[in-house]
Design a binder for these strands. Sequence first.
DNA 1: CGAAAAATTGATTTTGATCAACTCCGGTGG
DNA 2: CCACCGGAGTTGATCAAAATCAATTTTTCG
Lengths: 271, 271
Amino acid sequence: MEWYAPPSVRQEPPARQNPSALTRKLGQFMALSPCAVAALEALQVASREVPARTELVVQGRAHRHLSVLVRGAAIRYKLLPDGRRQIINFVVPGDFIGLHGCVFATASNSVMTLQKTVVAPFSCKAIVEIGQRSPMLAGIIFWLSSLEQTMLSERLVTLGRCSAYERLAYLFCELLERLQWAGLADERSFTFPLSQELLADALGLSTVHVNRTLTRLRRDGLVIIEGRTVTLPDPQALAMIANLEEGHLARCRPAAAALTQPPSPRSESAE
Amino acid sequence: MEWYAPPSVRQEPPARQNPSALTRKLGQFMALSPCAVAALEALQVASREVPARTELVVQGRAHRHLSVLVRGAAIRYKLLPDGRRQIINFVVPGDFIGLHGCVFATASNSVMTLQKTVVAPFSCKAIVEIGQRSPMLAGIIFWLSSLEQTMLSERLVTLGRCSAYERLAYLFCELLERLQWAGLADERSFTFPLSQELLADALGLSTVHVNRTLTRLRRDGLVIIEGRTVTLPDPQALAMIANLEEGHLARCRPAAAALTQPPSPRSESAE
DNA sequence: CGAAAAATTGATTTTGATCAACTCCGGTGG
DNA sequence: CCACCGGAGTTGATCAAAATCAATTTTTCG
């Protein structure tokens, strides 16, 4: 409702060359058929610009739309009755917003933009239809959802068992990797509208403690923050601190079964 | 591999009357067509008994099977390199084990039984085929996966922002509710093989602190533990402490769109 | 019965929260 | 141009929650 007011739909020129963050991300994990790419890009042709601090989804209310975040940044979070906030994850370009909206009547958490952001909304039905038309695309959507669940699990482990130092290291590694997927980060740095309060709410810490721990990471030469740009001089070392094993998320490489199977299953087994 | 050794497949009599925990759970959220029920029950005809403390899935290895937990209990957890353990969730009857196995090449976390348990393994392909044959069943599986993700998010919020007292209250409420879904708990008590160490690893606490906090909950008359039976004399009060709003998980009632939509342009075939 | 696992308890330490300034910086308006 | 404002970041002091260490008791179970 809130962000719905100005119906300033912008039609992207259909002949856009550069792939969306979504297809870029997917392309790094699996071979996309041209028609899969077409279907995914088609979802995003109608985009909409949303100002900062806008609630795209409100916990407890019905989902209005499903969308893909095309450009900008958002958080998915939950407020406790007494006002405490926990950020469940950061939403970066190429991520779906409110994919649950397809199957749940009401939202269990909120989503808010962090800066001026472009989203591509579409109806739930559009997704369902796409899934029905192509089993492969259904598999891709399920894969994306599972990937998100895996990241949630990792986060849970980090919150449950890691120190503040480790948690911050973890978050920086995660953001670097995810923004790289979207083609928005280079080898060791990224730009993202983080504040210490956001870090605190994402990691279950107080802002004061985030500040002190960040100071320590800076002193240790592991993180450099200049404005909105975060540089990780030694991502490997940071990943070690974050308890991330070699190729942690590379693990999410899709299994051949569901995703490389338009009609004919190919047997690509390794041992 | 481990639990695979004795191929003691037990064929349930096909005319079993009582529904599986899975269909019981689903039935509480949505109207299942008879043929959906048949398909779900068919998945579980071949079941296998697994002893306690058996690893059904091992992090870092390929998934072997997908299965449904029919009877018993398990945990999904992750070990950090230095041995710390975080339990990601408890697996109760009616839950899938390793649903990610459909789409990921390797498991990112482990699953271990807590007691003698019956699981119904089946191939990934079986699920994919079911989903392709009936969009409604595909929707149901996606709904189950989303429900799990929602519970994960809730857990994350609890770990990030709640005290030990609140966390324990939360976990007891969650288990009560989930076991009720499976038809395994009455209004205010359930039986489950919990130890204080398990509670600690699930909630990101030390066992000592769990012990003290549990003592406090007991003293406050909110939890009674006798052997493996947990009684919550006042689930409402406990839910309040756990920061659970009215009908928290009832929120996961499915949206009509995806799940009440048997009519499909394509092959919706009868079973 | 006896060993091992689980639960309990006390003492102490550590981590991180809370409270309270205070600084730095980027606007914004006079 | 500059004073001022507000938000974010920084710092110190203190407090509280939870971890850790170390026994000890109770329960479970072969």
